[in-house]
C-alpha cells in the first residue's frame, strides 16, 4: 500500500494532465450534442411526419448501439473507407457528440412538451411567426428546464469518455493504465482514476446547479 502511494505521488501530475483531455472531449461532445440536439428536438416536436420519423430513427440508432462499437465503426470503418484522416481525439468528440445529441434531443423535447400550449398561441397572437416564436419564446424556457437533464447527461458522457481510451485518446484512464503497466500498482492507480472521475462528477454537478440558479427567471416557477 505504501508503495502504491509513492507511485501515485510520483505520477500524479501525469495522470492529472489527463483531466484536460477528458474535459475537452466531454465539453466538446456536450456542445456538439446540444447544438444538434436543439435542432433535432424542434424537428421532432414541430416537424412534418417524415421529419419526425427520421429524427426517431436517428435517436433509435444512436441510443441503441454501444459507444465502443460506434467508435470502431466510425474510426476504422466509415472514416477509413472515406479516406478521411482524423485524430482519435476528434473522432471521439464527434461520436460522443452524436450519441449525446440523441439523448439531449429527448431531454429538450420533454422540456418543450412540458410547456403550456398557450405560450405558442400567445406568441402567434402578438404576430410572431412560428419560427420566431420557437426561437424567442419556447426555446428560452425549454432550455432552462433542460438543465437538470444536462447535469445527468454530463455525468454519463464524463464516464463514457473513459471508453475513448480504446482508440488511444490519452485521457485519465489511458494515462492511469500507462502508469499502472510500468509500476505494477494497478489496484491503487485505478482507484485513483475512479476518484478523479468522482470528483469531476461532483464539481460538474455543482456548477450545473449554480448555472440553473443563475439563469432562473425570477418569479417564474414551473
Amino acid at each position: 500500500m505504501l508503495q502504491g502511494f509513492i507511485v501515485i505521488s510520483e505520477n500524479l501530475p501525469y495522470i492529472l494532465g489527463g483531466i484536460w483531455v477528458t474535459l475537452t472531449v466531454v465539453v466538446g461532445a456536450l456542445i456538439m450534442g446540444l447544438s444538434l440536439g436543439l435542432v433535432l428536438s424542434v424537428a421532432q416536436v414541430y416537424g412534418s411526419r417524415v421529419v419526425r420519423r427520421t429524427v426517431g430513427v436517428y435517436v433509435w440508432f444512436f441510443r441503441g448501439i454501444p459507444l465502443l462499437v460506434l467508435l470502431f465503426l466510425f474510426y476504422f470503418g466509415i472514416l477509413a473507407n472515406l479516406q478521411i484522416e482524423l485524430s482519435p481525439f476528434i473522432v471521439s468528440i464527434i461520436v460522443l457528440g452524436l450519441i449525446s445529441s440523441a439523448y439531449q434531443s429527448q431531454i429538450i423535447r420533454g422540456a418543450i412538451l412540458s410547456l403550456p400550449e398557450g405560450q405558442l398561441k400567445a406568441a402567434r397572437s402578438i404576430g410572431m411567426s412560428d419560427s420566431k416564436a420557437i426561437v424567442f419564446v419556447i426555446l428560452p424556457q425549454a432550455i432552462r428546464l433542460s438543465i437538470p437533464g444536462w447535469t445527468n447527461e454530463y455525468t454519463i458522457i464524463l464516464k463514457d469518455s473513459a471508453v475513448t481510451y480504446a482508440l488511444g485518446v490519452t485521457e485519465i484512464l489511458a494515462r492511469s493504465r500507462h502508469v499502472a503497466e510500468r509500476t505494477y500498482q494497478h489496484f491503487w492507480i485505478y482507484i485513483l482514476a475512479g476518484c478523479i472521475f468522482l470528483l469531476l462528477t461532483y464539481v460538474g454537478t455543482k456548477l450545473f446547479q449554480i448555472l440553473e440558479e443563475k439563469v432562473r427567471t425570477p418569479g417564474y416557477t414551473q
Binding site: L173, Q185, H186, Y190, G194, F197, L198, Y202
Partner: peptide, 22 residues
C-alpha cells in the same frame, strides 16, 4: 456513490487488473 461515480471501464479494470495485485 462509488459504483455510480466510477466509470464502468475503470471498475472493470479494477476487478481484472487491480485485484490480482492484492
Amino acid at each position: 456513490l462509488f459504483f455510480r461515480g466510477f466509470p464502468l471501464l475503470v471498475q472493470l479494470y479494477l476487478w481484472y487488473f487491480g485485484l490480482p495485485r492484492i
